[in-house]
Amino acid sequence: MNEQDKNIGGGNTEHVVEVRDLTKRFGTFTAVNSISFEVYKGEVFGLLGANGAGKTTLIRMLSGLLRPTEGVARVAGYDVVHHPERVKFSIGYMSQKFSLYEDLTVAENIRFFGGIYGMKKKDLAKAGEAMIHKLGMEEVEDRLIATLPLGWKQRIAFSIAILHRPGLVFLDEPTSGVDPVTRRQFWEMILETAREGFTIIVTTHYMDEAEYCDRIAIMSRGDIAGLDSPENLQSQFSVSSMEDLFWKITREHKTTDAIPGL
């Protein structure tokens, strides 16, 4: 990567994620093809790419769910192959389905997820209370998740993902299916969280959301086709919008069949 990268992300040069020649093959198909990059502490790192470009495979390897075929990945200081359990304790994860239990109340969901991350009862009670207060959801604490609007569920899911205060949070298409206003509010929440020192890796389909990221990596056919800040990438490829950037990069990467999902 370019030397100038290291000035991005609040100037912090501490690596939360280090990836070297990471490869994943399924049979003869190469989903992730020998990629290398770093993510700095406190950074909002965007992963863009068409469906099947390798985003999900990459995230699964980084979260200890999938064993890499080749290469090394260190997350929060731990090797994902040798210490997947430690990695799992150090990360938060939120999927596009929000992963909350609809038939449990807000408070029960908090207690449950805190519980499976091994939080102490006292810490959990305190963190849960702080979270509810921060969200301004004191009145719905005992309501079932199923009865809440989508935007609320999304914010609860995100807050639960960082409840055990992981250094790194993965957000897998966290805004799909949400209206533009709610999306904007949610991104404000993400950026605020990053300012508190959390590192965030987010995948998205929405090109406008890429602008919120400190740096983005555009994936195409298992490779990283471009990695820099959104502004730098735009000037580097002489385009004026993220949409154009995405098209140009993926097309130059000789992909004929990749279509930006949505």
Binding site: S95, Q96, Y101
Partner: peptide, 13 residues
């Protein structure tokens, strides 16, 4: 189906 299994699998459980 609801995606919570995914959350369980990335958890330390």
């Amino acid at each position: 189906e609801t995606g919570t299994m995914e959350a369980m699998l990335v958890s330390p459980l």
